[in-house]
Each structure stands twice: as structure tokens, then as C-alpha cells.
Design a protein around this nucleic acid. Structure first.
Length: 361
DNA sequence: CGAGTTTGACCCGCGC
DNA sequence: GCGCGGGTCAAACTCG
């Protein structure tokens, strides 16, 4: 069995050059920007709005949880028009991300169309978000998580299942209801220029799988938050185009304060029930130990945020998926108009960054 | 001994 | 319908 490098050794360079990108900026009005930790300056579209923020600020030192009313203002991913095709010059990694974005957007839209008539602003929050944001309300109709499915299975499993059970023991079957699509939870992805695969974000993760990634020599690792009741997952993979870039995708929201960060409770109501009920932005990325390093960010989110105007008031924009360290400072998205003029990928990855990636190859 | 990792097998969704 | 690839499970294993 292969031995991992000591964690401490890995962390030394962790999160150097973080990048965040919106997974569907075309729909959300969000675009990428590179945040330079060393200078505090921001590059790329909308960078000026980032420029005044320090990294510690971004990481949510001044966290205050969003009130439900703020969440109500969150717009669902409704695309008025199909997203533009990715530019032909896109890297494979970015194309993959885009593909995922588009798929998820499509699925979410379909779900909304099916499950909702005329969505009101409050009800248009993607149901997948409700799942996450309401962990304490198992009666929520939107919940289709495995626990609920398991409960359903328990109820539906009776007589003729006994024979099947024997087969299942061998097949590791975890029967799922047909016609009940497995819902994808909201995602937040970011790219990290780092030598370390698994970034220490302060939460405790347990690796539950690893898969080889097609067209990439680097495997993708799957992690789950080890905190009981917290179903947050994250995928970590290294870009095949630029091995120095690690793509970390978070899925779900933490329902608990950061367990290992001394200041993990900063701004976080210790009452997790409050978080759940209010769909509070519990996606807290704590203060890592490597803040002194120069870091670049591109933020991403999924499902996409439908920021319909470029001037979406940063104070009212609270996405339950969006990391609190970005929300808390009301980080305003870059100009949406600048995003619509380009392909999705260009929105996700600022041109400068893409140039960087090319140069590095 | 508990927690975390590895790894092969399995399930499922999607594209062809 | 089939194959592929992504995602997950769980037994075996390692480590502290």
C-alpha cells in the first residue's frame, strides 16, 4: 500500500495561489478574478472589488450569518438562454468543469420546472440547497438524501425482498427508488495552485474513494466531512493541464463550526439548529495556516447564482452555497456584462490566468 | 482500538 | 441496449 506524505509536509505549500471561479458565471453574473494575496490587488474582471480585501477578511474573520431574508433573495439558476459554448481554446480541465456546470444547470432547471409552478423568489432556492440548509428538518419534502431514501427503502422493503437481500449482501446493493433522481447537492469549486492535493481547510475530512480521472494522470479523491450529521463532501483532483493546479470541489454545506480551527466559532452561531433553519451560510472556510503566502482565487459555485444584474447589491447577495468568507464581506461579483461577452470558460478562468497556465506548460 | 486510507467492486446516469 | 465514466461502498489495511 502506498504511503502518503506526512500531512505536515504537504501543508507547507498548501493553498499557495488559490483560485476561485464561478461554475456558471454566464448565468450568475459572476466571473473570475485573481486575488493576489501578496499585494491585495485583484486581477481580472471585477478585480477592483476584491482589491480592498485582505485574505483574512475573505476567510470570514467578520462572519455574521445571513438572515433568512437574505437567503430569500438568492436567485435560482434560471438561464434565459443557453450558455454559450466554451471557447475552442479551453483547456480540458476547464471544459470538464464547464460540462459539469452545464449539466447541473440543466438538471436544476428541469427540477425546478417540474417541481415548481411559478416560483416565488423564496421558493426558487434550488431544492438541493434546501436539503443542505435544512438538515434538521427531515420532513422537508425536498430531502432526498440517502438517509431519507434508506428510510423509504425500509418501508417499502417487505416480503419479496428477502431473497433479494441475499443477493444484495454480495452486490453491495443500495437500492434506490426509480424515477427518483439522485439529487446533486450544491457545489462550490475552486482551483488552487498548490503542490498539495488535499488542502487543509480546517475541517476534518475522511477519504472514501479515489478514482482515476479520464485523460488525466492524476486521480480524483473523494472526501467526506467526518463530523456527524454533516454530509459535506469534497473532491480533489489535480489538473492534467497544469499539475500545479488543484481543483477542489465542495458539495454541500457544513452544519457545524470548524472543528479544528481555534477561531472556528468566530461569527458562527454555535447553535447548529439555527444554521439549519436559516439556511445559514455555514460554508466556512477557516483560517488556514498558510495565509502569509501569495494566493490567487477564482471562486465557483454550483448551482449557479442567477445574478441578474451586474449591480446585484453585494449586501443582499447571500448564497447559501457561497463560502462565508466571501459572503461575509459582501464580495460583489465582477461585472456581469463583462462576463456575458465571453464564453463560460473565460468567465471561470481569467484570461491572465489562462495565459499563465499556458506559459507553464 | 479507533480513526483514517486504500482499493476493487458495484451502481447509476448519460451519450451513442 | 450497451458501454463508459463518475461516484460510492465497504472490507482490508495502516497508523498513532
Amino acid at each position: 500500500m502506498e504511503k502518503k506524505k506526512p500531512e505536515g509536509e504537504q501543508r507547507e505549500n498548501s493553498m499557495a495561489n488559490l483560485r476561485f471561479s464561478d461554475e456558471n458565471p454566464a448565468a450568475s453574473g459572476y466571473g473570475g478574478g485573481i486575488f493576489d494575496m501578496a499585494t491585495g490587488a485583484c486581477e481580472g474582471s471585477g478585480g477592483d472589488k476584491w482589491g480592498t480585501l485582505g485574505f483574512m477578511d475573505l476567510l470570514g474573520i467578520h462572519q455574521d450569518f445571513a438572515a433568512p431574508s437574505l437567503f430569500d433573495s438568492f436567485q435560482p439558476p434560471i438561464l434565459s438562454s443557453p450558455p454559450p459554448p466554451p471557447p475552442p481554446s479551453s483547456s480540458e480541465l476547464h471544459q470538464e468543469i464547464l460540462h459539469e456546470i452545464q449539466l447541473e444547470s440543466k438538471q436544476l432547471i428541469q427540477q425546478q420546472q417540474q417541481l415548481q409552478g411559478l416560483p416565488s423568489p423564496a421558493s426558487t432556492v434550488p431544492e438541493s440547497s434546501e436539503v443542505l440548509n435544512n438538515p434538521a428538518t427531515p420532513n422537508s419534502s425536498s430531502i432526498s438524501s440517502s438517509s431519507n431514501e434508506a428510510a423509504n427503502d425500509e418501508q417499502t422493503k417487505t416480503g419479496d425482498d428477502e431473497e433479494q437481500d441475499q443477493e444484495k449482501t454480495k452486490k453491495q446493493l443500495k437500492p434506490k427508488k426509480k424515477n427518483q433522481k439522485r439529487q446533486r447537492e450544491p457545489r462550490f469549486a475552486f482551483m488552487t495552485k498548490s503542490e498539495v492535493d488535499h488542502l487543509d481547510d480546517g475541517y476534518r475530512w475522511r477519504k472514501y474513494g479515489q478514482k482515476a480521472v479520464k485523460n488525466s494522470p492524476y486521480p480524483r479523491s473523494y472526501y467526506r466531512c467526518t463530523t456527524a450529521g454533516c454530509g459535506v463532501k469534497k473532491r480533489v483532483e489535480r489538473s492534467s493541464d497544469d499539475p500545479t493546479v488543484v481543483v477542489t470541489t465542495y458539495e454541500g454545506q457544513h452544519t457545524h463550526p470548524c472543528p479544528i480551527t481555534p477561531r472556528g466559532s468566530i461569527g458562527i452561531s454555535p447553535d447548529s439548529s439555527t444554521l439549519g433553519a436559516a439556511s445559514a451560510a455555514s460554508f466556512i472556510i477557516p483560517q488556514p495556516q498558510y495565509l502569509h503566502q501569495q494566493q490567487h482565487y477564482i471562486y465557483t459555485s454550483s448551482p449557479p447564482l442567477n445574478i441578474t444584474t451586474a449591480t446585484t447589491t453585494s449586501s443582499s447577495f447571500i448564497n447559501p452555497l457561497f463560502p462565508a468568507f466571501l459572503q461575509e464581506r459582501r464580495v460583489a461579483p465582477p461585472s456581469a456584462s463583462s462576463l456575458r461577452d465571453h464564453g463560460l470558460l473565460q468567465d471561470i478562468v481569467p484570461s491572465q490566468m489562462r495565459n499563465e497556465a499556458k506559459e507553464e506548460q
